[in-house]
């Protein structure tokens, strides 16, 4: 199969990769040893493959790799780039918001987006926002706790003087 060279930004760093026309973003990431985005349902329903393209959440399993050329692709691997977990990542640990962890990277990226759009989501707003992500361990109550924890923490950090 003919492969093409593309360049794009992966978690802020320029990357060159060879992709075949059939590759999805999940395939591309696996070839680059990034395993946080996982294909589960393969139909865009479950959210395990969530990644951000130019800052917007998409299902990596439904997006052709070739179309990322020149764009920013952000994944869970970029969240602790400075060696420190993001507020949302830490909140998931503190709330115990997972069992097997398969869905967690997708949930965390969606919660990051949610809190960027709405710094004080109600539980209903969080449920609605996350309704396209599935957790088969059913850690939903703890995930909602994590949203609350992360929202509070992000607000308290904003109030602290720089």
């Amino acid at each position: 199969m003919t492969k093409r060279s593309i360049t794009f930004y992966l978690n802020g760093r320029p990357v060159e990769a060879y992709v075949s026309p059939k590759d999805t973003l999940v395939d591309l990431l696996r070839n680059l040893d990034h395993f946080g985005a996982r294909e589960s349902c393969g139909q865009g329903l479950c959210g395990c493959c969530t990644v951000l393209v130019n800052g917007t959440s998409v299902s990596g399993c439904l997006e052709l790799a070739e179309l990322i050329e020149g764009k920013n692709l952000d994944t869970i691997e970029g969240l602790d780039a400075g060696g420190e977990l993001s507020v949302v990542q830490q909140a998931f640990i503190d709330a115990g918001a997972f069992q097997c962890g398969f869905c967690t990277s997708g949930f965390i990226l969606m919660v990051e987006q949610l809190l960027d759009e709405n710094d004080s989501p109600t539980p209903d707003e969080a449920r609605d926002y996350l309704s396209g992500n599935l957790c088969r361990c059913a850690a939903y109550p703890e995930i909602l706790d994590a949203v609350q924890l992360a929202a509070d923490k992000r607000k308290s950090l904003q109030k602290e003087p720089a």
Binding site: G44, L45, G47, T50, T56, S57, V58, S59, L62, E63, M110, D128, Y129, S131, G132, N133
Partner: peptide, 12 residues
């Protein structure tokens, strides 16, 4: 649209 598929699909 609020119940037409999920946010990621609606983004694309």
């Amino acid at each position: 649209l609020r119940h037409l598929s999920n946010r990621r699909v609606r983004n694309v």
